[in-house]
Amino acid sequence: MPARIGVVLFPGSNCEHDAVEAVRTLGGDAEVLWHGDDSLKGVDGVIVPGGFAHGDYLRPGAIARFSPVMQAVQAFAADGGPVVGICNGFQVLTEAGMLPGALQKNAGLKFLCRMATLRVETTDSVLTSATDEGAELRVPVNHFEGNYTCDDETLAMLRAEDRVVVRYVENVNGSVDGIAGVCNEGRNVVGLMPHPERACDDLLGSSDGAPLLRSLLESAAKAAV
C-alpha cells in the first residue's frame, strides 16, 4: 500500500495541488485536508504547503496555527508522525511552536522567486533519509519572509543536535547560518523554505526535490506499519 499523505489546505494556501501531484508522481497517495476539520483522516504523513494562509495577516502562520486541523497535526507529530512544512507551512510550524526559530522578511526586503542550491546537512530526518549527506540539490525558493532567525542559544542547540537539515549554498535571504530548513527534536517534523514539490520533474527545471519527498513517503510508509 502506498503511503497516504495529507496536504493541509488553509484559506490562502496555494501549493496544495503541487504537493498532491508531486506525492502521486512519486508513487504515494495524497489527499487534501481542510483546515477546519479536526481529523487527519488516518493519513500516514502530513505536508503543510506553501501559500498565504489567512492572507498572512498579522504574521505568516500566526492565524493558521489556531485552525482546528493544527491540533490534530500537533498530536500526530507528538506521536512521531512525519510532518513537513514547506515555505508558508514552515512559517505555520514555527508559529505553532513545533519548530524552533522564526522567519522574518528577507534581507534587503527582496521577494525571491528563483532556483536555489541546497546542501543536505543531515540524513537523519523524515525529509532527508533517502538523500546523501552533503548532496547539493537545486530547488526553487519563492518567498518574502524566509529569513530564518533564532537566538544564539537556539542556534547553538540546532548545531549541537545536528538539526539544521538543509542550508543554502549561497545564502539567498539573509538566514542565520544560511539555514534553509530545520527539524524538531524527534526529527519527524521538518520545515524548509524551498519548494521540493516544484522540483519533482525535469520538465520543471529540476527533479532534485524528488529524493526529499521520497524520504517523506518512506518515513510515512514506516510510520503506517
Binding site: Q104, K105, N106, A107, L109, N147, T149, D151
Partner: peptide, 13 residues
Amino acid sequence: RPRAGIADPEGST
C-alpha cells in the same frame, strides 16, 4: 518590535 539582538531587515533597509 523586534527583540534586542534579533536582526530587523526592515529597519536596516
